[in-house]
Design a binder for these strands. Structure first.
Ligand SMILES: [Mn+2]
Ligand SMILES: [Mn+2]
Ligand SMILES: [Zn+2]
Ligand SMILES: [Zn+2]
Lengths: 146, 146
DNA sequence: ATGCTATGTAGGAATCATTCCTAGGTAGGG
DNA sequence: CCCTACCTAGGAATGATTCCTACATAGCAT
């Protein structure tokens, strides 16, 4: 998805976030990929155009964008944090071999609920589904998938 | 759930794990609670009966038990690791206020699948569902749940 | 029972993603 | 165009987890 400066400005204004060169670069890099990169992946990408960029700015900016709802964090187990520029409701497929994360858009999964008997008085605001398995490429490598 | 020594020995033998005093203490503490404690919670609990217990032994043992399938790790976002002595298939309710984790046993949730169109060639081995919300206690504290 | 050896344990050091601190720098409302 | 609230860069600090290593022990074989 190509993001021009006008669209960028619109989104940042809508979420009341100040737009800077660094933020534009970080957000654009994230919004234009579906690979769920780590903070360091983004730092490496963005540094090519902005050699002075600090790793700290990447972390700080991701925090700001996340609180504003422009970005979300997608953590898999205890691995390093992964980020997602797609903030629509969706779920993920995780490859146990290469650790890639693939989006799953499925209206059925968005409708899950806990039966009242199990809800224990919780007020539920959302949910998250992760499917674990092996991608096509990783299945070829190892015939006996555990 | 009360766990006697004979039952403990049976479980460890079945999973081919050597039984020691430390492992018995750690596993018992975890299997007898439904609170999904952290490694440090377990260390603090077990240290009361075993003052010489090392924190490292707790981590190492949890790793061994996990690989053997006697224990599982339940991570919420990027918080410290939480452990679960319940290795049957089940899912979780997570309180955004007090961070407690509550078990959800629901046969319907165990049957989820990804439509072929979305599976992208993955061979899926399992899935995990997390519901996020506020527990009864945390709802009372703050009238405007976000 | 006793001894052997693979395996486990304790304690301390090391790791490393993330957060904290602080002294400049800059976006953008007025 | 000018303030100033907010941002950035760089370095230090943090803290859960892992690594290292010398000593201890469970469980098998004698
Ligand atoms: Mn995604
Ligand atoms: Mn559980
Ligand atoms: Zn893969
Ligand atoms: Zn709560």
């Amino acid at each position: 998805m190509r993001l021009n400066h006008a669209e960028l400005l619109t989104r940042f204004r809508r979420h009341a976030v100040r737009l800077t060169r660094q933020r534009a670069a970080i957000y654009t890099a994230l919004a234009e990929t579906t690979s769920h990169p780590t903070a360091d992946d983004l730092y490496q990408t963005v540094k090519r155009q902005h050699p002075m960029m600090s790793r700290n700015t990447v972390y700080y900016t991701l925090g700001v964008l996340q609180q504003a709802g422009l970005v979300q964090e997608v953590n898999v187990g205890h691995e390093v944090a992964r980020f997602d520029g797609n903030v629509t409701v969706h779920h993920h497929l995780i490859c146990l071999g290469c650790r890639q994360i693939v989006d799953v858009m499925d209206e059925g999964l968005n409708q899950l609920a806990v039966s009242n008997g199990q809800a224990r008085g919780f007020r539920i605001l959302g949910h998250r589904v992760e499917f674990h398995g092996y991608c096509a490429g990783c299945q070829r490598g190892k015939l006996d998938v555990p």
